[in-house]
């Protein structure tokens, strides 16, 4: 999987690169509009992460350029401006997703995975993690062939864990993933625990291993050996 990261802030570029690299992606990066436009024009990528405000140009123009040349790459806009106009403009131009800064790397990772999954029509339509099978298109989960009925939030939580398996995800990032902007005003994350407890119980009832490790103080790790 090849990803092009277009971001002018070097420290952010470095950390995104590192995180995605650990996920097994090949990540190339560009720091300004000209270089980004060059790379996007010459090479093919599976996914392109593009910042809107760039030196020497706008990220939106890169989206336009990619669409004009008929690129099949998934495009995620990452912007400091969480403005609905930019979002609508970006999506209208053909971007697939929009993520406002400051975002969580785990969130970015799960968005990339979802995007790539949606784009790979020819590939596997299901995700298999040991005894757990997930069919994202139908939001169906089964353990050892037996269907598990999950609520919407439990399903989203499981997908978030699976996308970020073997990684520590903080309670904040889970809250942000499940409740979006609404999580801003929440001062406690107790209610995450309720969903987690229910999810664990439903999976284990069907004979699934308990993969969720509690990381003291921080959050959880969905650990698959």
């Amino acid at each position: 999987m090849k990803i092009l990261l277009i971001e002018d802030e070097p420290d952010l570029r470095k950390s995104i690169k590192q995180y995605l690299h650990q996920e097994g992606y090949v990540v190339e990066s560009a720091a300004d509009f000209v270089k980004a436009s060059e790379k996007a024009g010459v090479y093919d990528y599976d996914c392109i992460l593009v910042d809107i405000t760039l030196p020497k140009g706008s990220g939106l123009d890169i989206v336009k350029q990619l669409k004009d040349k008929g690129s099949k790459a998934g495009i995620i806009i990452i912007s400091a401006k969480n403005s609905s106009t930019d979002k609508v403009k970006g999506l209208d131009l053909g971007a697939d997703d929009y993520l406002a800064k400051p975002f969580d790397l785990a969130e970015l990772n799960s968005r990339i995975k979802a995007l790539i999954r949606r784009r790979n029509f020819d590939g596997n339509k299901s995700i298999i993690v040991n005894e757990i099978t997930i069919i994202p298109e139908q939001r169906q989960v089964s353990v050892k062939g037996e269907a598990v009925i999950l609520t919407a939030k439990e399903y989203d939580l499981l997908m978030f864990f699976v996308s970020n398996k073997n990684r520590v995800v903080s309670k904040n990032s889970i809250a942000e993933h499940l409740w979006g902007d609404d999580s801003d005003q929440m001062d406690s994350h107790d209610f995450i625990y309720v969903h987690l407890r229910n999810l664990r119980k439903k999976l284990m009832d069907k004979g699934c291993n308990d993969y969720v490790q509690t990381i003291y103080g921080i959050g959880y790790n969905f650990k698959i050996d």
Partner: peptide
């Protein structure tokens, strides 16, 4: 506020990495 989002993103990203 906009200018602050990018530095915040840097801190947040590095924090995520540190947690790993």
């Amino acid at each position: 506020s906009h200018e602050m989002q990018t530095p915040l993103a840097v801190v947040k990203a590095n924090l995520s990495l540190l947690m790993q």
